[in-house]
Design a binder for these strands. Structure first.
Lengths: 153, 153
DNA sequence: TTTAATCCCTAGTTGTTTACTAAGAAATCA
DNA sequence: TGATTTCTTAGTAAACAACTAGGGATTAAA
């Protein structure tokens, strides 16, 4: 039940982009340095985020990436599910037409539980936007707390 | 963010034991057959459940396993965390004294999110007991729905 | 027009984890 | 004594995670 580095790094990168929202394209080199992630690996994470329409890219020198819309319009859920797939404890709650997949899934006592877990996770991550993270970040800076984004494992 | 077979099989096995609660020890062979799990593998799952005090064993012929207390007193959360470890999206929300683990974890904008996810999952699984599953199971049987426990993946 | 910076894409690699299988020792009932 | 069952450990094949590596395409600036 752990997130992989894909989701964690991707969220860090998107938060980084959110801090620079409105300031033109930010290069992956910059993000990678600040967030201590390899550029090559970061490229592999930003690619699905771009395809999902969460970021836009500018190619060539002085190019980079920027959020495709305001931080308040991008949820943590959209980022994490883009990089990790559905945040579900089992596949059965997420794959439909499960007749060949799982015979009695609609009546399964355990599936009911997995669905509740899925809903609760989804509800949390969909209610948090990048803007919330920025607000949190800036509040803590005001109160003189060194508030960084850490190497959360 | 998926449960492994350890948690899923373990929950199925515990539900099976709950259906026979009060009827003496049930052998792993029986459970394994009903739930379509290899006996050898099931042995490896029941072992931590016993060490966690969730089931008791009777050795020797006609032996087996039984719940250590009523189904209403055993939560799904206790079963899943015994087999999967803490149902947390990251280690940082669960390991304390994280100074060497994660420098700024107490001020981390992403950790706040991971903690909320952790809390919501924990709250769901801790609120469901094996008795709830039995009630659900029997309700559906009453209404003539073939309610099985499926091969949830 | 060249150069450097950057995005973009794919393939390969290494280590870890998962999901078992296998096998044998210890205990207990008939 | 023999069958049944728990208990424990070791091994293994396949999948997955977390990258590394390298090269092509695009563009701004010198």
């Amino acid at each position: 039940m752990k997130l992989s580095t894909r989701g964690r790094y991707g969220l860090k990168a998107m938060f980084d982009l959110a801090l620079y929202y409105g300031e033109g394209p930010i290069s992956l080199t910059n993000i990678a340095e600040r967030q201590a992630i390899s550029v090559n690996y970061l490229e592999q994470l930003i690619s699905p985020l771009r395809k999902a329409g969460l970021v836009e890219s500018v190619r060539g020198a002085q190019g980079g990436y920027m959020l495709s819309r305001a931080p308040g319009a991008i949820t943590v859920g959209s980022i994490l599910t883009t990089l990790e797939g559905p945040l579900a404890p089992t596949d059965c709650v997420v794959i439909d037409g499960g007749e060949d997949f799982c015979d009695h899934s609609q009546y399964c006592v355990t599936k009911v539980i997995y669905e509740k877990i899925y809903e609760s996770i989804t509800s949390v991550v969909n209610s948090i936007t990048l803007q919330h993270m920025i607000d949190d970040y800036e509040n803590n800076q005001d109160s003189m707390i060194v508030h960084t984004i850490c190497e959360c494992k």
